[in-house]
Nucleic acid binder design. Structure first.
Lengths: 164, 164
DNA sequence: TGTGAAACACATATCTA
DNA sequence: TAGATATGTGTTTCACA
């Protein structure tokens, strides 16, 4: 099973050539770029480019197109990282925990971690007081053993572009 | 100065009404949505909707439009959080440090933190071995006091949608 | 792959309430 | 300030060679 997944992964990889990589880079940098400009950058015809973009979308390699909003401009400039330690819990509890945390819109990212910390959340709010409100909502939904928040003072880089 | 910025921020906020919020939510969820569908969702005419979207873009509230790529499908499924502690350093050193780290494409996010940890990086790579390569590149560029990496085992949520 | 035509969406002007 | 209408332009989509 494990091995099968790996094969699968590498099959996916084989299906992406250098031209696809150029297309993906262009789309990551600017989702509103026209097929004409993308095709010129990849040195292919508009039509071929369209077919490739469609394939990349249908394969889920391009998962979605979105507009990014400046957090500062809408008063949500405070990023908070929350490390959570849990006691041993049942699979059912973990399921409930995961669903409850994911449902909170202020939770932008949510990972199960290796090592000391069990879960890591990235939360986006307007202020420290605002975080406290989210924190209270979280602990009301699930009982947590150990929660520790660290606040970002300054965002030096934040991109959605993967290093292709 | 501090107060002036706050005023500025709230002026921005006042310029976003409930209709804008509906538009922003729609664009965050699907950047390829047509003006027609967005205008219908916000109960305004296509024309007015176009004017509002343009205003939101020109004001930088919509900062950019991008295509999101599935990290798994391109073999970049390993997320690593790197906590960095620095000794006291000069402003010039911090400047150099920030520029060097930001220039690494695998560094997706980069924050200056409050509290115990000075800086936090989110790195996106293909494997733990791949991370080691990035780590070596980092320490070759700048001398760091204390670097500790934690690896994500599973991504439970990862969205670019801000809670508007 | 490439060509080209039809369908669609966008951008803008003008006028009305 | 928002909506209706009209229209030129650009882009996407697809059938066919």
């Amino acid at each position: 099973m494990e091995e099968y997944n790996f094969r699968n992964k590498y099959l996916f990889m084989e299906n992406i050539d250098d031209t696809d990589r150029l297309i993906l880079r262009a789309l990551q940098a600017d989702g509103s770029a026209s097929l004409e400009s993308i095709s010129a950058g990849a040195s292919i015809s508009v039509n071929t480019c369209w077919r490739r973009v469609k394939r990349l979308e249908e394969a889920g390699i391009v998962s979605k197109r979105v507009a990014l909003i400046d957090p500062e401009k809408v008063g949500l400039a405070q990023t908070v990282f929350v490390a959570i330690r849990t006691r041993d819990h049942s699979a059912a509890w973990l399921q409930r925990f995961s669903a409850a945390v994911s449902a909170v819109p202020e939770v932008i990212e949510f990972y199960r971690m290796a090592g000391d910390v069990d879960y890591l959340l990235k939360i986006q709010v307007g202020s420290v007081a605002d975080y406290d409100r989210v924190y209270k909502a979280l602990i009301a939904r699930v009982d947590l053993a150990d929660v520790s928040a660290t606040f970002a003072m300054e965002c030096l880089k934040n991109t959605t572009e993967l290093p292709l």
